[in-house]
Write a protein that binds this DNA or RNA. Structure first.
Length: 941
DNA sequence: CCCAGATATTC
DNA sequence: AGATCAATATCTGGGC
């Protein structure tokens, strides 16, 4: 990446008052006044001076800072602050609003902040610009601005004639004052500033101040060694220490104000012609002045026909700094990484001290803009995580190093301990795994671009950084790396193995760009509370669960495997004998040939692609209609048994393969950003679909056991969460009452639906109502209901009608979900998690119907997912808080599995149950049933 | 080797 | 004609 191919944009920050003063005193009032006596010299001078600088420097962005009337925090420190500076003459003050109006008309952004000086606004803008990868020019006649100077910031300091602006960079400051820009405020504090009525040490000027600074390193050290300084000046220093300290506090500029603007808001070039004409008319500017100013401000660099200026590139080209030793990393961090407390309004919540869900506080963009980025390259797989390389990006600067390198390890640890609250990452959970591999941890994090992207668009199947960058930034990382015309002209050898350091840094830059892009979007969609209060804390819990893993009984699994394999093989033999030939029972195609051609069975329903289905339901149908004792009957019976046992054999096999030989446990990965509704999923292996419905399959659960040092497993699951959520959200009194009534919920509902006493409800009636209840939230059709229950469509229709008569508000609620989604484009869970449904307006009937069912289901399934995440975080916190050893190991949507340590059974059961039941306060109580046993099957209840 | 389709499992 | 939300994993068979 050759920087010259993507020039860094330039930001011009102007000290408005300083420029207005200059203009006022440079031009005679007499020559610049309107007929009715309004002075215009400052307005005229200000605008022409500004236009000159813009033409000379051709910045891409411009921001003008102004002071606000009234005191600032500095007045409270120093009562006499700026006391002798003669109040600006009324003739100048009256022009300030005119200047601001003119700037607005000319399309130039000006900014002020109550309680702060223009200098602080300047410092903040400069810092923001630097962070966004800009070259920053500060136009100011105030020497306090010199402290802002560094590689990226230059101060334009007016000389005697305004025209000869001095470009003050580090070298210029050092040449003139013999101190670095960072040390300049120390020097100023010693020397004082007469123009601001700030007394320094009597008899100490620039020369002595610089001498001391260079001798001792800085003001703090000088104060420390004040006793050692001899002579009159040393005495004077000791007598004025308090004053000097105060001076230093007063001249420190505030660099992290919340100005409510981004650098991208500081574009210019769009003159409001009407407004300008009117204002310039009132000011009685001459024709030549008008056209010149208009042209000057309308000609933004590269403006294409006046439309817009170049966008700030999403990616800030990293300025890579080289590390030589620990000290260099420490210094780098101190210089560039913002401490957590500088990020402002409190997104720095330690994840171990989770605040209550706070839907109101949704601000994060400003903090994220100021945040630093950590990218770790390595492997996040639970069990064998590894951290190969780490890159830190802060502002436009970046460094990379091996986090395990003892030279940097402790410094990184300290950085994470103190600065994690202002950290942006991509994939907090994965980061925790990789950090843990390097014996590091991370107490908090401000932003996660993976989770953030997921909350913005849960239907986007992204996951990786590359996909996110492509989706949200339209940046294609691979192309960036190896693409043509990227500065490798004539050198085509190193495309293969790109420098891992550069790669890591590039990725950190992408994360930084993503964070800046996503945070405002997250704010706009009010999703930040979900990220901060639910997803990030959940990530940490999942990290622990994955790292711990689930213990299994290898012997038991082997035994089950042998059992299933044996039966599967026997069934295969029988099936082949009945078919009269060998075939692959796992090939639907081959099965079709045998069943529908060779055996001549009546073809079943077709699949989408036209072939005949051989799924279990169809085979069962064929089986029960085939003649007892026939070859087909025998074949189908064996095939069905084979299907079942072979599947179970396969499941056990993958579980066995997944056992980590290091600890005999299975470490699944919970993916937090894949489901469109907010649920988790489990991969590699999937531990959320271990058989449970059939007795044979359920046996596999007996292979999940407490690990060494633990005595039992606890299984805790929510009863009818989704129905309870429906009751709460719909506000249906009858349904709410049904839950309050306790006892057998489905039986009670059936009695209401059929209008009969509870004890007269038959098992069949109960089953029908239960299926109806659950089908509701899925958008189940009467056709589907009839098929599921094996009843005629007419009966299903009657059932549905009676159900909705009984629970009218449920019906209304479900309809309102779809209606609202069609209006707003999205659905929302209790906690505000959104899912978008563009297909609700699709002309395609099928897609539209599917979207309607989705819109029905998403808020309900999603709310249940939110609740479970909160419950997990609460449970984890409760267990840790009580210093218990027992730990959550699995989550299966509405169930938590906990590994119980000896003597903790009762306490843990109570804590987990409470954590789950009180995760949220609904109109109906949440009910959690628990069971304890020596394996997962026995823990079932 | 990759992808789609069919089938299975879970909540 | 199609008709239940959300997932993951395995196997087959076709295509490159």
């Amino acid at each position: 990446m050759d920087p010259s191919t993507t020039p860094r944009p330039t930001l011009l920050v102007v000290d408005g008052h300083s420029l207005a003063f200059r203009a006022f005193y440079a031009l005679p009032v007499d020559n610049f006044s309107t007929e009715d006596g309004q002075a215009t010299n400052a307005v005229y001078g200000f605008l022409t001076m500004l236009s000159q600088v813009i033409e000379a420097e051709k910045p891409d962005r411009v921001g003008i800072a102004f002071d606000v009337k009234g005191g600032t925090f500095r007045n409270e420190l120093l009562t006499e602050y700026k006391g002798t500076r003669e109040a600006a003459p009324e003739e100048l003050l009256s022009q300030l609003p005119l200047i601001q109006q003119a700037l607005t008309a000319l399309g130039v952004r000006w900014i002020e902040k109550t309680g702060y000086e223009g200098d602080d606004v300047i410092a903040t803008l400069a810092t923001m610009g630097e962070r966004d990868g800009c070259r920053v020019l500060v136009l100011s006649g105030d020497r306090d601005a010199f402290q802002l100077i560094d590689d990226d910031v230059t101060v334009l300091y007016p000389g005697y004639h305004f025209k000869d602006l001095k470009h003050m960079d580090s070298a210029a400051v050092e040449a003139k004052y013999h101190v670095t820009p960072r040390q300049y405020p120390d020097l100023a504090a010693l020397r004082g500033e007469t123009s601001d009525n700030i007394p320094g040490v009597p008899g100490v000027g620039d020369g002595f101040a610089a001498k001391w600074i260079n001798q001792y390193g800085g003001l703090d050290a000088i104060i420390e060694h004040a006793d050692e300084i001899g002579g009159k000046k040393g005495e004077a220093l000791r007598e004025n220490l308090d004053q000097v300290r105060l001076n230093r506090r007063v001249n420190a500029l505030v660099r992290d104000l919340d100005l409510g603007v981004t650098i991208d808001d500081l574009g210019y070039g769009h003159v409001d012609a009407d407004l300008t004409e009117r204002l310039f008319g009132e000011l009685q500017f001459g024709e030549r002045t008008r056209t010149k100013l208009l042209a000057s401000f309308n000609t933004a660099p590269d403006a294409l026909g006046g439309q817009g200026q170049p966008a700030i590139p999403a990616i800030v080209e990293p300025l890579v700094d080289t590390l030589t030793d620990v000290a260099s990393l420490r210094m780098w961090i101190e210089q560039y990484c913002p401490p957590a407390d500088a990020t402002g309004d409190g997104p720095d919540r330690s994840l171990d001290v989770i605040a209550e869900y706070d839907r109101q506080s949704t601000q994060c963009a400003d903090a994220v803009r100021r945040s630093w980025t950590l990218y770790v390259d390595g492997d996040a797989k639970p069990g064998h995580a590894e951290a190969r390389m780490a890159a830190i990006m802060a502002g436009a600067h970046a460094v990379a190093f091996d986090p395990a390198d003892p030279r940097y390890h402790d410094t990184l640890r300290a950085l994470l301990d103190t600065h994690a609250g202002s950290l942006s990452v991509h994939g907090f959970k994965e980061l925790l795994h990789m950090l843990a591999a390097a014996d590091l941890s991370c107490p908090a994090v401000l932003f996660d671009t993976n989770l953030g992207g997921y909350l913005i668009d849960p239907d986007f199947q992204g996951g990786g950084l590359e996909e996110c960058a492509a989706h949200f930034l339209d940046i294609h990382i691979d192309e960036r790396a190896g693409g043509p015309s990227q500065g490798t002209l004539g050198f085509e050898d190193d495309d293969q193995d790109e420098d891992p350091v550069q790669r890591c840094i590039d990725h950190a830059a992408v994360v930084a760009a993503l964070a800046r892009r996503l945070a405002p979007e997250l704010e706009r969609r009010e999703q930040y509370p979900l990220l901060r209060d639910i997803e990030l804390p959940t990530s940490r819990v999942l990290f622990h669960m994955e790292r711990i893993g689930a213990s299994v009984d290898r012997v038991r699994l082997d035994e089950l495997h042998a059992q299933f394999a044996d039966e599967s093989a026997r069934m295969e033999t029988i099936a082949e004998r009945a078919a009269g030939r060998s075939l692959n029972l796992q090939s639907p195609k081959q099965l079709g040939v045998v069943l529908f051609e060779e055996m001549g069975l009546k073809p079943t329903k077709k699949t989408r692609k036209g072939s005949y289905t051989t799924n279990a339901a169809a085979l069962q149908m064929l089986y029960s209609t085939s003649e007892e004792g026939s070859k087909a009957n025998e074949f189908l019976g064996a095939l069905l048994r084979h299907r079942e046992t072979n599947k179970l054999k396969q499941i056990v096999e993958t579980l066995i393969d997944a056992i980590d030989p290091k600890d005999g446990r299975i470490h699944t990965t919970f993916t937090q950003t894949v489901t469109a509704t907010g649920r988790l999923s489990s991969v590699d292996p999937n531990l959320q679909n271990i058989p449970n419905r059939n007795a044979a399959g359920r046996e596999i659960r007996s292979g999940f056991v407490p690990g060494g040092g633990f005595v039992d497993l606890l299984s805790a699951d929510y009863s009818q969460v989704e129905l309870r959520i429906m009751a709460d959200l719909s506000g249906d009194e009858a349904l709410i009452e049904a839950f309050r009534a306790g006892a057998d919920f489905h039986r009670y509902v059936a009695s209401l639906v059929f209008g009969i006493p509870v004890d007269e409800v038959t098992p069949d009636e109960r089953a029908r109502v239960k299926a109806m209840s659950y089908g509701l939230a899925y958008g189940l059709s009467t056709y589907g209901l009839s098929k599921q229950l094996g009843i005629p469509n007419s009966e299903a229709t009657t059932l549905r009608d009676r159900y909705f008569e009984t629970f009218g508000k449920v019906h209304d609620y479900l309809e309102s979900l779809v209606a609202n989604a069609r209006r707003t484009g999205y659905t929302e869970t209790i906690f505000g998690r959104r899912r978008y449904f563009p297909d609700l307006n699709s002309p395609n009937r099928q897609r539209r119907d599917a979207a309607e069912r989705g819109a029905l289901n998403a808020p309900i399934q999603g709310s249940a997912a939110d609740i479970m995440k909160i419950a997990m975080v609460r449970a984890d916190r409760a267990l840790r808080g009580a210093k218990l050893t027992s730990r959550v190991v699995l989550q299966i949507h509405d169930e938590l599995v906990v590994e119980l340590a000896a003597g903790e059974v009762e306490e843990v059961t109570a804590l987990v149950k409470d954590a789950m039941e009180h995760a949220v306060d609904l109109a109906v109580p949440l009910d959690v049933s628990t069971g304890v046993g020596t394996d997962w099957q026995r823990a079932a209840h």
